[in-house]
Write a protein that binds this DNA or RNA. Structure first.
Lengths: 146, 146
DNA sequence: AGGAAGACCGAGTAATTTAGTCAACTATGC
DNA sequence: GCATAGTTGACTAAATTACTCGGTCTTCCT
């Protein structure tokens, strides 16, 4: 899981979109104006989100974007992974194979740790929808028995 | 919360140290050998961890590092924040003030989201100790019935 | 028909960050 | 007093990030 500003901008833009989708499509120019981002940059982000099926587009005058699904059913995790793509964990596992992993000392005990950490973040972000962000309704764990 | 390879290396090195701290101090050369990292780079990492009080050092022949506290009492969160330092959340709040935040549209509704996300990661990493990693004892939510 | 709004696309670049090196210094034990 | 080993800080190369640019294709309106 990756947390760059890119992912943050995408969420900002999507939240904006979710908040202004009365019925008509919303143009990137509008979002750019409100969120203080460049149209060109937004294009990049929305292209990816369209490919992932998070938004649908309409060309021509009066065109723009709208959410493919209701705000309640679109999670932050989906938005972030749509624009941030890769998600390599440790340097072992996929690519280098044995390098660093499975070695004399602490081997890749750390491998499991990062796997689990990634899962933890993923789980949280998947539990929050655009509607939640829009309503300021962020879940705070009920404090699991101390 | 930041998750760079630097932080991962630091955890690898600390885990190695925790696993080889019989009684004597462990030299960076040993760790470098086992974990396949350069001594020069490890120096950087340990310097920071020493300042944070996670390890204590001994100079001269037979010298090296050892944990300042038992492995059970040193958390991954401490190690990671020791070497990765900064931890800026959104671009609002601290630095730019009102830029991007508190604007017409979705304002900084996203602000709370990232705050909470950071806390989520922090909490998890703070719940894992070096000893846990060493023993492969990573908490996985009790597998909800399944 | 034709012009303007606006999505779409790929390549390209500037700046930041990261990872890692180097050289020189200081303390300690034998 | 020499070898071991930590300490410091500046420096650099590579990668990544964030972002721009030029141009195309579609659709609507007159």
């Amino acid at each position: 899981m990756k947390l760059s500003t890119k992912g943050r901008y995408a969420v900002m833009a999507m939240t904006d979109l979710a908040g202004h989708a009365d019925r008509r499509a919303v143009s990137l120019a509008e979002i750019a104006e409100r969120q203080q981002l460049s149209v060109a940059y937004l294009e990049q982000l929305f292209a990816r989100m369209r490919r992932r099926g998070l938004v649908v587009s309409a060309r021509g005058p009066g065109g723009g974007y709208r959410l493919a699904r209701p705000a309640e059913e679109t999670t932050i995790a989906e938005v972030v992974t749509a624009v941030d793509e890769p998600l390599r964990a440790t340097r072992c596992g996929g690519k280098d194979g044995a390098i660093g992993c499975m070695r004399g000392g602490a081997r890749c005990l750390t491998h499991d740790l990062w796997e689990e950490t990634g899962r933890q973040i993923q789980d949280y972000l998947a539990s929050v929808s655009l509607a939640d962000v829009l309503s300021g309704h962020l879940r705070r764990e009920p404090a699991v028995a101390a």
